[in-house]
Amino acid sequence: MESTKLKVERINQAQTTITKRKIEVPQYVWSVLTLIGLGLLWQMLTVLLNIPSYILPSPLAIVTKFITEFSMIFSHSLTTLSEVLLGFGLSLLVGIPLAISIVYSRYLATSFYPILIAIQCIPMVSVAPILVIWFGYGLATKVLLASLISFFPIVINSVVGFRSLDSDMHDLGRSIGISEWKIFYYLRLPNALPHLFGGFKVGITLAVVGAIVGEFVASERGLGYLQLTANNRLDTVMVFATLLALALVGMLLFFAVHVVERLVMPWYNSTKAERG
Score class of each variant (00 low, 15 high):
Asp168Gln: 13
Ile178Cys: 12
Leu116Cys: 05
Gly173Glu: 11
Tyr107Phe: 07
Asn157Glu: 04
Val202Arg: 04
Leu226Ala: 10
Ala99His: 03
Arg221Gln: 14
Leu93Phe: 08
Ala118Thr: 05
Leu144Trp: 10
Glu180Trp: 06
Gly173Val: 06
Leu148Gly: 02
Glu220Arg: 09
Leu145Cys: 06
Ile212Ser: 10
Ile183Pro: 03
Phe162Thr: 05
Gly95Lys: 03
Ile115Trp: 12
Leu116Phe: 03
Val125Glu: 09
Leu223Trp: 00
Tyr186Glu: 07
Val208Met: 14
Gly173His: 02
Arg163Gly: 05
Ile117Phe: 02
Gly173Phe: 03
Asp168Ala: 13
Tyr107Pro: 11
Val125Met: 12
Glu180Asp: 12
Cys121Lys: 02
Thr141Cys: 04
Val94Ile: 11
Glu220Ile: 11
Val132Arg: 13
Ser175Met: 15
Gly199Met: 08
Ile204Ser: 00
Arg106Phe: 13
Val155Pro: 04
Val213Arg: 07
Asp168Val: 15
Gly224Tyr: 04
Ile100Pro: 03
Gly203Met: 11
Met169Tyr: 11
Leu193His: 05
Leu148Tyr: 03
Leu165Val: 15
Leu228Asp: 11
Leu145Val: 08
Ser147Gln: 12
Ser147His: 08
Pro123Gly: 00
Phe135Thr: 06
Thr110Ile: 12
Tyr186His: 15
Ile149Phe: 12
Arg221Asp: 03
Ile100Ser: 02
Phe112Thr: 01
Asp171Lys: 13
Phe112Val: 06
Ile212His: 11
Val132Lys: 13
Met169Thr: 12
Val103Asn: 04
Leu145Ile: 05
Gly210Lys: 01
Glu215Val: 13
Tyr113Lys: 07
Ala128Ser: 14
Leu228Val: 15
Thr205Ala: 11
Ile149Gln: 00
Phe151Val: 00
Tyr225Asp: 12
Glu180Ile: 07
Leu131Ala: 02
Ile176Arg: 13
Asn157Arg: 04
Gly138Ala: 12
Ile183Glu: 08
Leu189Glu: 14
Val160Ser: 15
Gly138Glu: 09
Ile176Leu: 12
Val209Ala: 05
Ala207Asn: 05
Ile122Trp: 09
Lys201Cys: 06
Val94Gln: 01
Phe152His: 10
His195Met: 09
Arg174Pro: 02
Phe112Ser: 02
Gln120Asn: 09
Ser126Tyr: 12
Ala99Cys: 06
Glu220Gly: 15
Leu226Asn: 05
Val209Asn: 10
Arg174Phe: 09
Gly222Val: 04
Leu108Asn: 04
Ile183His: 00
Gln120Arg: 04
Asp166Thr: 09
Lys142Pro: 00
Pro114His: 06
Ile176Ser: 14
Ala211Cys: 04
Pro129Asp: 10
Gly214Tyr: 07
Leu223Gly: 00
Ile102Pro: 00
Asn157Ala: 00
Pro97Ala: 07
Pro153Tyr: 07
Met169Pro: 06
Leu206Lys: 08
Leu145Lys: 07
Glu220Lys: 10
Asp166Glu: 15
